[in-house]
Write a protein that binds this DNA or RNA. Structure first.
Lengths: 332, 332
DNA sequence: TTGTAAGCGTTATCAC
DNA sequence: GTGATAACGCTTACAA
């Protein structure tokens, strides 16, 4: 009834357990005859190695633990693909646990991964605080992806988000805009850097920044814009914290009878597939997600295999994807 | 250097290894004094149980393996949350592997999960063929979520997609449409059922079905509609295979100077957050994804704990989410 | 090239 | 209550 083990295979093939092990790990020092016999026996029995036993016997697990802030968020999916592709190349399995936008859940996920003896932790857009990350990285190599802040003890793969925001501002200014409002990400982890980038860029161009409190979804954008319409003047361009907020801006503006980009230009951030949708066609700041994923793997591998111990930080360059939500202002 | 084990903790606490085990599994038959001593020692050493050792020693792993067709697809995320919530309730860990829209990758993922000795397999929108599923379900309880076809040997949690398509048609007909085109999902797994539902509903209402070959993304919709415009007449309503195809229809129609819903109504399928975006506001067929996830867990648990052996199939009822992409035809 | 045997970190079954 | 001791399924010297 229970699953066949090496023992079973060994008996069937008329060899010792150790020999079966050698065959399974395709050692070169096994005679072709026995190898065939073992493989045949394994095949017939439907033998499947027990990873727990293997991991216990060996020092290592060849397994990496990844925690994704929110599996809903399409931004992270691309990072995952990058991570998986690279991990494949190096023969590592990647176990995914969903953080569910909740620090407590993430903490439990870290714990689960550690109990599984993963060789490294890859945290994608984590909600964890510094202490959590310090604690984790004291146990296994840890790399944080897509969270601009400094992560003590851990490696960091991110993009320069101040620069990303500056790209957005530059683009709008080049089009002729001077009255550009930023709807920020409120408590979101990347919000600070993006706002700062916006503000610096505006000032360095001699323009007055205007920052509205936003958030990370459509409703937040709506609230911000309604508030803007009531208490202040409508700008000719809006730079939103992310694509979803930009999407909210789009519909709120249109509901108010304003055309995008004719009356108001809108720029998003993240280049998620929302921005790509033809019907939205959002100009947005792009982060090289796939590459970020790959670098995450490379980085932890340097710790695992080459035992680097100094924390590393890689700041990739964001780029701007120009689409149809931006245009010169009505009258320059 | 290496991580502390029960042995280490036992020494430190001045007890036997077995006693530590009892404490860790909070057995009632341990004196309070020793319990405290053990816990303190574990705390100080940063002891963490080794799941591989535990899983090896015990018969079971309390772990479930989930494979997601494509982590990009927001439709699946919701299912994942349902699965996780229910699994939590029953004290199971859920390991996620990404199928990457590729049958071969999924096959490897199944293999990995089996080697990890998961107690059940949850396949969300799998690309695997019948044989793969038969093979898997011969080894562990397997439940297939969100794939309408019959899955021999496995349990199935799905919605009645024929019915979903019929809901879309009914809605359009009630609005007054008679000329309704369906853009299908081509080779996609759910395409057959949805097309069939559309066709039956049309015929039963005395209307002539027109089915265009589509696919599962925006470009497919564009191709279908351009083709339609060139070789045939434009209908007053389009029922698309899914939301993304519907989104493609939206932009292609508007690019052609047609207004939605004034000139053409559009209905999607899946109620992903694309449909929810205010700016898209797609009428679409909804599947109770969270509930599907929960039922998946319940179903496999019946096999694991109550050892049911007969395959089960649950067909949930889809519903229609009416938004702003549908309206009565121009002149009824 | 093959087999023997020890050990990986737990749990579980006994005695004490 | 507590502590030996034998599994669990595999890898890995070391012998043969």
């Amino acid at each position: 009834m229970s699953r066949p083990t090496m023992e079973t295979v060994a008996e069937r093939a008329g060899v010792s357990r150790a020999l079966v092990s050698l065959v399974m790990n395709n050692s070169s020092k096994v005679s072709e005859a026995k190898r065939q016999a073992v493989l045949r026996a394994a095949e017939q029995l439907g033998y499947r190695p027990n990873l727990h036993a293997r991991n216990l016997a060996q020092a290592r697990t060849k397994t990496l633990g990844m925690i994704i802030n929110d599996i809903h968020n399409p931004f992270f999916a691309e990072v995952v693909y990058g991570v998986e592709a690279a991990a494949d190349d190096y023969g590592f399995d990647v176990l995914i646990l969903n953080g569910g936008r909740d620090a407590e859940r993430e903490r439990r996920a870290v714990e689960t991964h550690l109990q599984f003896q993963v060789e490294a932790l890859i945290l994608v857009g984590p909600k964890l605080d510094d202490d959590d990350i310090i604690r984790a990285s004291a146990v296994v190599p840890t790399v944080v992806v897509a969270s601009g802040r400094d992560n003590p003890g851990a490696d960091t793969i991110t993009t320069d988000e101040e620069r990303g925001a500056a790209l957005a501002v530059q683009h709008l200014v080049e089009l002729g805009h001077t009255d550009i409002v930023h709807i920020d990400g409120a408590a979101n982890i990347s919000s600070r850097a993006r706002s700062r980038g916006y503000e610096k860029a505006m000032r360095s161009l001699g323009l007055e920044p205007r920052i509205l409190r936003g958030g990370d979804d459509e409703a937040d954008a709506e609230a911000a814009i309604v508030n803007l319409a009531e208490t202040d003047s409508m700008p000719t361009a809006i730079f939103a914290f992310n694509d979803l907020v930009a999407a909210g801006a789009l519909s709120t503006l249109e509901a108010a009878g304003l055309r995008v980009p004719d009356d108001v230009s809108v720029v998003g951030y993240d280049n998620t597939f929302i921005a790509e949708l033809n019907h939205m066609s959002l100009t947005t700041v792009n982060q090289p997600r796939h590459q970020m994923g790959q670098l995450a793997i490379r980085t932890v591998l340097e710790r695992i295999e080459d035992d680097r111990t100094e924390p590393t930080r890689i700041d990739l360059a964001p780029t701007l994807s120009v689409r149809r939500s931006t245009a010169p202002p009505r009258k320059a």
